[in-house]
Measured scan of single mutants.
Amino acid sequence: MDVFMKGLSKAKEGVVAAAEKTKQGVAEAAGKTKEGVLYVGSKTKEGVVHGVATVAEKTKEQVTNVGGAVVTGVTAVAQKTVEGAGSIAAATGFVKKDQLGKNEEGAPQEGILEDMPVDPDNEAYEMPSEEGYQDYEPEA
């Protein structure tokens, strides 16, 4: 019985440690998101679009440190934060509304985080759909 109880105690310690790591990862992701939003706020009209992409990228980098179902929630929060940063930029006159959601080359930025393969159960990952990809044929 002692062996059984000791095993359960060790398992509990492992769960607590994993929860603490997840909590730490979420806190880091939130900190990076805040950094990115402050970065966007300090940019001029020309830099705002690039700044919004930076927020998304920093958040995406930190999301990889967070495991399990938390990833889905962090990704949703990050996307809403990026959308909010863009709205703030438009409201303050840093950028025109028609410039939001495009990178410096004018290509749409939507789907940055949505296409990231995420499995809350950590069982399997699927690649994003290939609808947006084109076949590449090298020139002879």
Score class of each variant (00 low, 15 high):
Met1Ala: 15
Asp2Cys: 00
Asp2Ile: 05
Asp2Lys: 07
Asp2Leu: 03
Val3Ala: 15
Val3Trp: 15
Val3Gln: 14
Phe4Pro: 03
Phe4Gln: 00
Met5Thr: 07
Met5Leu: 15
Met5Gly: 01
Lys6Pro: 02
Gly7Met: 10
Gly7Val: 07
Leu8Phe: 13
Leu8Ile: 12
Leu8Trp: 15
Ser9Trp: 11
Ser9Phe: 06
Lys10Trp: 15
Lys10Cys: 03
Lys10Val: 08
Lys10Phe: 14
Lys10Leu: 06
Ala11Asn: 00
Ala11Lys: 00
Lys12Ile: 14
Lys12Gln: 02
Lys12Trp: 15
Glu13Pro: 00
Glu13Ser: 04
Glu13Phe: 06
Glu13Asp: 11
Glu13Cys: 06
Gly14Pro: 00
Val15Thr: 00
Val15His: 00
Val15Asp: 00
Val15Ile: 03
Val16Leu: 11
Val16Glu: 02
Ala17Asp: 02
Ala17Phe: 10
Ala17Met: 06
Ala18Trp: 13
Ala19Lys: 01
Ala19Ile: 15
Ala19Gly: 05
Ala19Thr: 10
Glu20Thr: 09
Glu20Asp: 06
Thr22Cys: 15
Thr22Asp: 00
Thr22Leu: 15
Thr22Val: 14
Lys23Tyr: 14
Lys23Gln: 05
Lys23Trp: 04
Lys23His: 03
Lys23Ser: 02
Gln24Asn: 02
Gln24Ser: 07
Gln24Tyr: 03
Gln24Gly: 02
Gly25Ile: 12
Gly25His: 05
Gly25Tyr: 13
Val26Gln: 00
Val26Arg: 00
Val26Ile: 11
Val26Ser: 00
Ala27Pro: 00
Ala27Trp: 10
Ala27Tyr: 09
Glu28His: 06
Ala29Thr: 09
Ala30Asn: 00
Ala30Ile: 08
Ala30Met: 10
Ala30Leu: 11
Ala30Asp: 00
Ala30Gln: 01
Ala30His: 04
Ala30Lys: 01
Gly31Asn: 09
Gly31Pro: 00
Gly31Cys: 15
Lys32Gly: 01
Lys32Phe: 13
Thr33Gly: 02
Glu35Thr: 09
Glu35Asp: 07
Glu35Val: 11
Glu35Pro: 01
Gly36Lys: 12
Gly36Pro: 00
Gly36Met: 11
Val37Leu: 11
Val37Ala: 05
Leu38Lys: 02
Leu38Thr: 06
Leu38Asn: 03
Tyr39Asn: 04
Tyr39Leu: 06
Val40Ile: 10
Val40Gly: 02
Val40Gln: 00
Gly41His: 08
Gly41Gln: 11
Ser42Met: 13
Lys43Val: 11
Lys43Thr: 03
Thr44Phe: 06
Thr44Gly: 03
Lys45Trp: 14
Lys45Leu: 15
Lys45His: 14
Glu46Gly: 01
Glu46Asn: 15
Glu46Phe: 11
Gly47Arg: 04
Gly47Ile: 14
Gly47Phe: 14
Gly47Ser: 10
Val49Ala: 06
Val49Asp: 01
Val49Phe: 12
Val49Ile: 11
Val49Glu: 01
His50Phe: 12
His50Arg: 04
Gly51Thr: 13
Gly51Tyr: 11
Val52Met: 07
Val52His: 01
Val52Asn: 00
Val52Tyr: 13
Ala53Val: 09
Ala53Gly: 09
Ala53Gln: 10
Thr54Phe: 04
Thr54Glu: 02
Thr54Tyr: 09
Val55Gly: 01
Val55Gln: 00
Glu57Thr: 07
Glu57Val: 06
Glu57Met: 11
Lys58Asp: 01
Lys58Tyr: 15
Lys58Cys: 07
Thr59Tyr: 14
Thr59Trp: 11
Thr59Leu: 15
Thr59His: 01
Lys60Val: 15
Lys60Cys: 09
Lys60Gln: 04
Glu61Lys: 10
Glu61Ser: 05
Glu61Cys: 08
Glu61Ile: 08
Gln62Glu: 02
Gln62His: 09
Gln62Lys: 07
Val63Gln: 01
Val63Arg: 02
Val63Leu: 11
Thr64Ile: 09
Asn65Glu: 09
Asn65His: 14
Asn65Lys: 11
Asn65Ala: 11
Val66Gly: 01
Val66Asp: 01
Gly67Lys: 02
Gly67Arg: 05
Gly67Glu: 03
Gly68Ile: 08
Gly68Pro: 14
Ala69Trp: 11
Val70Cys: 01
Val70Asn: 02
Val70Phe: 01
Val70Ile: 08
Val70Ser: 03
Val71Gly: 01
Thr72Glu: 08
Thr72Ile: 03
Thr72His: 09
Gly73Gln: 10
Gly73Pro: 02
Val74Gly: 02
Val74Trp: 14
Thr75His: 09
Ala76Gln: 05
Ala76Ile: 07
Ala76Arg: 04
Val77Phe: 14
Val77Gln: 02
Val77Ile: 08
Val77Pro: 02
Ala78Gly: 05
Gln79Asn: 06
Gln79Ile: 13
Gln79Leu: 12
Gln79Phe: 14
Gln79Val: 10
Lys80Ile: 09
Thr81Ala: 03
Val82Tyr: 09
Val82Trp: 09
Glu83Phe: 03
Gly84Cys: 12
Gly84Phe: 10
Gly84Ser: 08
Gly84Trp: 09
Gly84Asn: 07
Ala85Gln: 05
Ala85Asp: 04
Ala85Gly: 02
Gly86Ala: 05
Gly86Phe: 11
Ser87Trp: 13
Ile88Asp: 04
Ile88Asn: 02
Ile88Cys: 03
Ala89Phe: 11
Ala89Trp: 09
Ala89Ile: 14
Ala90Phe: 12
Ala90Glu: 13
Ala90Pro: 09
Ala91Ile: 14
Thr92Ser: 14
Thr92Leu: 13
Thr92Gly: 11
Thr92Asn: 05
Thr92Gln: 03
Thr92Ile: 15
Thr92Phe: 14
Gly93Lys: 05
Gly93Arg: 08
Gly93Leu: 09
Gly93Asp: 02
Phe94Gln: 04
Phe94Ile: 12
Phe94Ser: 02
Val95Arg: 02
Val95Ser: 04
Val95Asn: 06
Val95Met: 03
Val95Trp: 11
Lys96Gly: 10
Lys96Val: 13
Lys96Phe: 12
Lys97Asn: 13
Lys97His: 07
Lys97Thr: 13
Lys97Gly: 13
Asp98Cys: 07
Asp98Thr: 09
Gln99Met: 12
Gln99Glu: 12
Gln99Gly: 02
Gln99Cys: 09
Gln99Ile: 13
Leu100Gly: 13
Leu100Thr: 10
Leu100His: 07
Leu100Phe: 08
Gly101Leu: 15
Gly101Phe: 10
Lys102Val: 15
Lys102Ala: 10
Asn103Arg: 10
Glu104Phe: 14
Glu104Val: 15
Glu105Arg: 13
Glu105Met: 15
Glu105Lys: 04
Glu105Thr: 13
Gly106Asp: 05
Gly106Lys: 08
Ala107Val: 04
Ala107Cys: 07
Pro108Ala: 15
Pro108Ile: 01
Pro108Thr: 12
Pro108Arg: 11
Gln109His: 04
Gln109Ala: 02
Gln109Asp: 12
Glu110Trp: 02
Glu110Asn: 10
Glu110Tyr: 11
Glu110Ile: 03
Gly111Val: 15
Ile112Asp: 06
Leu113Arg: 02
Leu113Val: 10
Leu113Gln: 13
Leu113Asn: 04
Glu114Leu: 09
Glu114Thr: 02
Glu114Val: 09
Glu114Ser: 09
Glu114Asn: 08
Met116Asp: 03
Met116Gly: 04
Pro117Thr: 08
Pro117Cys: 10
Pro117Gln: 08
Pro117Gly: 11
Pro117Arg: 08
Pro117Val: 08
Val118Ile: 03
Val118Gly: 12
Asp119Leu: 08
Asp119Thr: 06
Asp119Gln: 13
Asp119Lys: 00
Pro120Gln: 08
Pro120Trp: 07
Asp121Ile: 05
Asn122Arg: 03
Asn122Gln: 03
Glu123Ser: 03
Glu123Tyr: 06
Glu123Asp: 12
Glu123Ile: 10
Glu123His: 05
Ala124Gln: 14
Ala124Met: 12
Ala124Val: 10
Ala124Thr: 13
Tyr125Phe: 12
Tyr125Ile: 06
Tyr125Glu: 07
Glu126Ser: 13
Glu126His: 04
Met127Trp: 04
Met127Tyr: 09
Met127Gly: 14
Met127Leu: 10
Pro128Gln: 06
Pro128Ser: 06
Ser129Ala: 02
Ser129Leu: 06
Glu130Lys: 06
Glu130His: 04
Glu130Arg: 03
Glu130Val: 07
Gly132Ile: 08
Tyr133His: 08
Gln134Leu: 11
Gln134Ile: 12
Asp135Met: 05
Tyr136Trp: 07
Tyr136Phe: 12
Tyr136Asn: 11
Tyr136Ser: 03
Tyr136Lys: 09
Pro138Ser: 05
Pro138Asp: 08
Glu139Val: 09
Glu139Trp: 08
Ala140Pro: 13
